[in-house]
Design a protein around this nucleic acid. Structure first.
Ligand SMILES: NC(=O)c1ccc[n+]([C@@H]2O[C@H](COP(=O)([O-])OP(=O)(O)OC[C@H]3O[C@@H](n4cnc5c(N)ncnc54)[C@H](O)[C@@H]3O)[C@@H](O)[C@H]2O)c1
Ligand SMILES: NC(=O)c1ccc[n+]([C@@H]2O[C@H](COP(=O)([O-])OP(=O)(O)OC[C@H]3O[C@@H](n4cnc5c(N)ncnc54)[C@H](O)[C@@H]3O)[C@@H](O)[C@H]2O)c1
Lengths: 205, 205
DNA sequence: AAGTAATCGTTCTAAATTTCACGATTGAAA
DNA sequence: TTTCAATCGTGAAATTTAGAACGATTACTT
């Protein structure tokens, strides 16, 4: 089996979302052309992505939604549920805690941490906010996989260090500065400022 | 002059941020190796990116921070200020409205829109929330460039249509579904669910 | 039963991006 | 003044990614 590129993973996750919607609508067949219309990805690209997981389609017919969903899911989502912890219950952190859509995709925020006394021991959307000091203990107990950095940038590296110590293996970093972690820990930077500016540049060009 | 790829634009925006910090710290010289350490981008990549804007470095010395900043900025950020409008003043929308960091980067949210009566005519962080019906008029008057979709997915396409009609040329779409717009309008999808799941996949692999 | 149209899957081609290697340039030191 | 080390800039190679073409397969139609 060949390695799957991050781009492919992202696209496959899109396909999975479409498939779940289709299955909910009781549609049992779908073609690469259909998925293309739903996702904007070209049909060739879709067939190519899917074919890296084996032959699951039938010519003239397309793909069986339930089967395809199962195949894709088995390959890229070994885990049933993604357990996430959140650092920083500010504006952005609260938005994430209050978002109901994550549950549907089996993303579960299992705990939150903040430094500020007034935020601690509150429950937001049934997630408890702990003091940062308790992070290593709580994270291990709840067996979280991924951490979100939603603290101001001057606290970002410190929080990242705690995350690494606590055994998290992936970090989503919303703070506008790069963080240093061992390379066994995957980092995904989401820098909204850069996204906005970048779009602006593409427009003017 | 050759065309600048989106990847390059994103990296250059990173360099610009580093440069601003350095200048604030009164550092007048910086090498590609330094920038590499600050950003994680390889030094060769940095030199190559910069060289597409001309020769601005001096061998043995590096780059003059102030000069480099000016050169990069002139090339990719023609506009002084990016004017943004926000659709959907819910959890995510409020977080964006309350974020003070955008001003520093000359990103200015000039107006917000919502459907819900209880949100309308409030001011959040001195940004007025208008009813969606007034969007075309307000957007034209304030000469906004970019719109943010932070409404539930079933409203996303409708909001996108209004944005196009109002003359926006770029859209940042936080809703978990693709939107259809004329191809003269640039769309940047930011799908947090996919980002989290994607990170999860990379970890397990 | 044969023809046909739709769709998959694969191979080859092309384009974009990154990495590598190395020459060129400069200021400082011996 | 000569040497040297640091750094830039660039052309070529390698890698990755997307795209196009096309044969293979299947079910429907007549
Ligand atoms: N809100 C946005 O739209 C937005 C946009 C772009 C970037 N960001 C970035 O996202 C991050 C969060 O933004 P925000 O608007 O939610 O900030 P915020 O100031 O509203 O919230 C930050 C929270 O982190 C907590 N905190 C600070 N230091 C901590 C520490 N060491 N450990 C644990 N908690 C700590 C604070 O008590 C606070 O609750 C920031 O880095 C910001 O730059 C936010
Ligand atoms: N909050 C998160 O962390 C998060 C995570 C992933 C994705 N998203 C996506 O981001 C979007 C916004 O999320 P949220 O949590 O802020 O949602 P929300 O429900 O809190 O807010 C949505 C807002 O949009 C307004 N709205 C609805 N229809 C509208 C219309 N036609 N025109 C104008 N306004 C309208 C509503 O009145 C509400 O104020 C959603 O599409 C969601 O799926 C959010």
């Amino acid at each position: 089996m060949k390695k799957i590129s991050p781009n492919t993973i992202n696209r496959v996750l899109l396909y999975l979302r479409v498939l779940e919607d289709l299955i909910k609508d009781k549609r049992y067949l779908v073609s690469s052309g259909d998925i293309s219309r739903f996702t904007g990805v070209s049909d060739v690209q879709i067939r190519k992505d899917i074919s890296s997981f084996g032959k699951v389609g039938t010519p003239r017919i397309g793909y069986r939604t339930i089967e395809l969903k199962k195949v894709l899911k088995d390959f890229i989502l070994q885990c049933d549920v993604v357990r996430i912890v959140l650092f920083g219950v500010g504006n952005l952190g609260k938005a994430i805690l209050k978002y109901p859509g994550f549950n549907k995709d089996r993303i579960k925020v299992v705990a939150a941490f903040d430094r500020l006394g007034s935020r601690i021991n509150k429950k937001i959307n049934s997630v408890i906010v702990y003091p940062v000091e308790r992070a290593p203990e709580v994270i291990k107990r709840l067996r979280a996989d991924i951490g979100i950095i939603a603290v101001p940038k001057k606290s970002a590296q410190g929080v990242a260090d705690i995350m690494v110590l606590s055994g998290l293996r992936g970090i989503v970093n919303f703070s506008p500065c790069p963080i240093n972690v061992p390379k066994s820990v995957m980092v995904k930077d989401i820098d909204l400022t850069i996204e906005f500016l970048s779009l602006c540049c593409s427009i003017k060009a």
